[in-house]
Design a protein around this nucleic acid. Structure first.
Length: 635
DNA sequence: GCCGTTTTCGGCCCGACTGTTTTCAGTCG
């Protein structure tokens, strides 16, 4: 929800050209919206539209389940690689769970005509600026509607002005504190940037958790939230801590607000503090009793959708699941009555929990297998946990080789031998040297002659070093039309071929699909490197007919890479998940350009785990013999 | 708005906290 609301807040660019083309006022805004959506993939474009429609319905005060239904459709589109255009053509839209008659019509109209009149008509029922108000923390649909109807406020700018001029005073249900909260929310929205990239969030979390642990009295501190689930970007950091019996929680939360990274304190209480850091990201610290740590960790790790599903299961059994533990309904009710008027911590001290100490206990008490944090997105993991069929997720130690890295021969900083030595130190059984091909001029890409000489050098190193197999490969460019940057006869001399797109990354979908299918079809191509070429927060990358790509990759025996380097992480979790279910083999590679980068594959592992990958799904988790067999089978 | 092997109508998405209130509405995760 937040992502969509934030991006909807973008004002159309000013300027005579835009004015001339689209006029001024709401129509111009709408035209700009369609223009901007044009640059996105069809799935995310539609998902954003359904999120917007849900927001409009909420502000209009329609029955909440209508908005929920549209939100579900948005999520179904975002979480899948279903080829929407094809589904429209085949009349199979109905097979997408959550898509009914109304959503179907919107999707069909957008696919066929590029826009939907149902959509246009719905969002025209409220001023466009109201939707961006939803991005303000503390402001919800009901209050926004009230501000609009009773004070004629239609945008963030008008809201700011109204607060300054005292125009909000006298509104029922909105007191001084609420106004201050809204004011802060507007400031936050202005200063908060994009979501923070996972590696930076990990580093920040590590530092802050270490600082929390160093405070006297703290016995345990761990990060929760989307960071623990390893989402590729993180909105804020949640840290949970326990303290010794004689320590005072309020002293800990206060010390936390004095950390050097803190720019301002958003809230400070006995057991919780929220601060904004100089990294532009909010960090929350919660002090939790040791006996309830597992329940709190489960609760604050999320996701929301996963937790709602768990609570539903608890409810069916007459149980209540909250951040304090799992309780029998009547037990929790009784405890709440006993603690009457006081907060939930008082209720928790009176109630006897069925499970609360550890996450494992909670899942077990609900007859669920333990669900790894990376899987907690309600993408089917709860059902698998019920059947005890969760995948045994891959871990870093499962990787036994590297299939994609560079040396000084092209744009790397280490020699063949240095890279091989480092791979050996990492405990790898093999490493494939894959320098750039000739089109990558800026990266000193190798022409055929240099490549063959390079191959001889690699073989020499392989003969010299014991305890590691050093193979010669290439990262061969996939040209814009799908042809490769080397002749087949050259590729035939190599042990292994990674083929990657580096240019023409704004190609339209059909052309891109054709290009990629041609590359997959080449019998010497073993892996498609960073298939889309996307860069997180920078460049969207290529969009394909994913079904066709997965099918071709599975049938031909071509693996797809999860490139572990930031900001690539390409394939992403959703596509990697679809690839697995289509029977496609994956690789997790560092694309290392230095000896130090070799082995930095944590982020790639994170993506693979979120995709549900196990050892058998990852080529470089297999012994060298299996990799050679893989190559031989395609040739 | 969507869904259904008990339902084509009636139920979906739960629980806690905050602020504004004196019993609850709105927001959040």
């Amino acid at each position: 929800m937040c992502g969509v609301v934030m991006s909807m807040g973008t004002d159309p660019p000013e300027g005579p050209a835009i004015d001339a083309e689209y006029g001024r006022g709401p129509m111009r805004r709408q035209a700009f919206f369609w223009l901007r959506l044009g640059a996105m993939s069809l799935n995310s474009k539609l998902a954003e539209m359904f999120q917007t429609m849900a927001a409009v319905l909420e502000i209009r005060g329609e029955p909440v389940f209508k908005a929920i239904a549209f939100t579900r459709v948005a999520r179904a589109l975002d979480d899948s690689t279903i080829d929407i255009a094809k589904a429209v053509q085949d009349g199979t839209l109905d097979q997408i769970k959550g898509v009914g008659a109304s959503s179907r019509k919107v999707i069909e109209d957008v696919v066929r005509n590029g826009r939907s009149s149902d959509y246009d008509e719905l969002i025209a029922t409220i001023p466009a600026g109201l939707i961006e108000l939803l991005g303000i923390s503390g402001l919800g649909p009901k209050t926004i509607a009230k501000l609009w109807r009773e004070r004629d406020i239609k945008s963030i700018a008008e809201l700011s002005a109204a607060i300054d001029s005292g125009k909000l005073e006298g509104l029922a249900g909105i007191g001084a504190k609420k106004i201050e909260q809204i004011k802060q929310g507007i400031e936050m929205l202005a200063t908060a940037g994009k979501r923070m990239g996972l590696p930076f969030a990990m580093e920040l979390a590590q530092t802050i958790v270490a600082q929390v642990k160093a405070l006297p009295g703290v016995s345990r501190a761990e990060p929760a939230g989307s960071l623990r689930r390893c989402k590729e970007t993180v909105g804020d950091l949640d840290i949970l801590a326990t303290i010794s019996a004689d320590a005072k929680p309020a002293e800990i939360t206060e010390a936390f607000t004095k950390f050097q990274q803190v720019t301002h304190v958003l809230g400070q209480g006995d057991t919780k503090s929220s601060v904004m850091t100089d990294a532009g990201i909010q960090v929350d610290l919660r002090i939790v009793p040791p006996d309830h740590f597992g329940a709190a960790l489960q609760y604050f790790t999320g996701s929301k959708e996963h937790n709602v599903h768990l609570r539903q299961i608890a409810q069916e059994r007459g149980l209540t699941l909250n951040d304090w533990g799992l309780y029998k309904d009547e037990e929790w009710e009784k405890a709440k009555a006993k603690a009457k008027g006081k907060d939930a911590s008082h209720a928790a001290t009176h109630a006897k929990a069925i499970a609360s100490k550890s996450e494992a206990e909670i899942y077990a008490a609900l007859d669920l297998a333990y669900v790894e944090p990376e899987l907690r997105e309600d993408r089917g993991e709860v059902e698998l946990a019920q059947q005890n069929k969760l995948p045994k997720l891959i871990v870093q130690a499962d990787l036994v080789g590297e299939l994609h890295c560079h040396t000084t021969a092209s744009d790397g900083t280490a020699s063949i031998e240095e890279m091989a030595q480092r791979a050996k130190e990492l405990g790898y059984a093999y490493i494939v040297i894959t320098d750039h091909s000739k089109s990558q001029v800026q990266a000193r890409g190798l022409d055929a002659k240099r490549l063959l000489a390079h191959a001889k050098e690699v073989r020499k190193v392989n003969d010299k070093l014991k305890g590691i197999e050093v193979l010669i490969g290439t990262e061969c460019d996939i040209l814009a039309d799908g042809h490769l940057d080397y002749e087949d006869a050259v590729l035939a001399e190599l042990d292994f071929v990674v083929a990657s797109p580096h240019t023409a990354l704004r190609q339209e979908r059909d052309k891109a699909t054709e290009r990629m299918l041609r590359a997959i079809d080449n019998k010497y191509v073993n892996v498609i490197g960073h298939p889309t070429g996307r860069l997180i927060n920078q460049r969207p990358g290529l969009e394909f007919d994913w079904d066709a790509i997965f099918k071709a990759a599975a049938q031909s025996g071509t693996a797809l890479e999860i490139n572990a380097s930031w900001p690539r992480l390409d394939l992403d979790d959703v596509r990697a998940r679809s690839a697995i279910s289509a029977g496609v083999m994956l690789t997790i590679d560092t694309d290392a350009h230095s000896a130090r980068d070799l082995g930095s594959n944590e982020l790639g592992i994170a993506v693979a785990r979120r995709a549900g990958a196990t050892v058998k799904h990852v080529l470089n988790a297999q012994p060298l013999a299996a990799v050679r067999k893989w190559v031989a089978a395609k040739r």
